[in-house]
Measured scan of single mutants.
Amino acid sequence: RSVMTEEYKVPDGMVGFIIGRGGEQISRIQQESGCKIQIAPDSGGLPERSCMLTGTPESVQSAKRLLDQIVE
């Protein structure tokens, strides 16, 4: 099973929602998708923050879907 890492951008203002209280939302996304998510510590003043998604292609797709649901 191939593991890939893909960069994915999320709106900087939504990072708090994505991480959730005490990190529980991001933990849930990682468990549900099976994908490891690393969010950049800051956006460098840009409107979007970079996330690194690491996992199988299916888990990366799944994580993107879950992130999109939060961001919308």
Rank of each mutant, 00 (worst) to 15 (best):
G45H: 03
G34I: 02
G13I: 11
G45F: 08
I70H: 08
R49M: 05
M52F: 13
V15S: 08
E58Q: 14
I18M: 09
R21D: 02
E32A: 07
Q31A: 11
R65I: 09
I29A: 02
E48A: 10
L66H: 09
E58F: 05
T56F: 06
M52K: 10
C51A: 08
E58A: 09
G34R: 07
E72A: 15
V10K: 01
K64Y: 02
M4H: 07
G22N: 15
M14T: 07
D12Y: 10
P11W: 03
S2D: 03
L53N: 00
G13S: 15
P41Q: 11
Q69C: 07
P47G: 12
P47T: 13
Q38S: 13
G44K: 11
L46Q: 14
E32Q: 08
S33K: 01
A40G: 10
M52S: 14
K9E: 02
R65H: 11
R1F: 15
E6S: 13
E6C: 06
Q25E: 15
L67H: 01
S59I: 02
S33M: 01
C35D: 00
S59W: 01
Q61P: 01
L66N: 05
V3R: 11
I37C: 04
E32F: 03
L46S: 13
A63L: 01
E58C: 03
V3S: 06
L67G: 01
R28M: 07
I19F: 09
L66C: 14
Q69L: 08
S59V: 05
P57W: 05
R65N: 13
C35R: 00
E48W: 14
G16Q: 11
G13K: 14
G44M: 13
I18K: 02
G22Y: 04
T56P: 10
S33A: 08
G44H: 06
T56S: 13
R65K: 13
T56I: 07
L46E: 15
R28S: 10
M4P: 02
G34H: 09
G22T: 05
T56R: 09
T54A: 07
G23Q: 08
E24M: 06
I39D: 01
C51G: 01
L67M: 05
Y8W: 08
K9G: 03
D12K: 08
Q61C: 14
E58G: 09
G13M: 11
S50V: 12
P57I: 06
R1P: 02
S62M: 06
L53G: 00
G44P: 08
I70K: 11
E48R: 08
L46D: 13
I39Q: 02
V71K: 11
V15D: 03
M14I: 10
I39M: 11
E32T: 12
Y8E: 01
K64E: 03
S59K: 10
E24Y: 08
V15E: 05
I26M: 07
L67T: 01
G16S: 09
Q25G: 10
R65S: 11
V10P: 02
R1Y: 14
D68Q: 09
P41Y: 03
P47V: 10
S33V: 02
D68G: 14
Q38G: 06
R49N: 06
S27M: 12
Q61D: 14
G16N: 10
E48T: 11
S27L: 09
I19N: 10
G34M: 05
G20S: 07
I19L: 13
G34T: 04
T56L: 08
T54N: 08
S2I: 07
L46N: 12
K64M: 08
F17S: 15
S2E: 13
S33C: 03
V71E: 06
E7G: 05
S43T: 10
T54Q: 08
Q69A: 13
I19G: 07
Y8C: 02
S62A: 11
A63K: 00
A40K: 09
I39E: 02
Q61Y: 09
C35A: 10
T54P: 00
L67P: 01
S59T: 08
D12M: 08
K36P: 01
G23H: 03
K36G: 09
S43P: 02
C35V: 06
G20T: 03
T5W: 04
S27I: 09
R21T: 06
F17I: 10
Q61L: 14
M14F: 12
V3H: 10
Q69P: 06
P11N: 04
G44A: 13
Q25M: 11
G13A: 13
R1D: 15
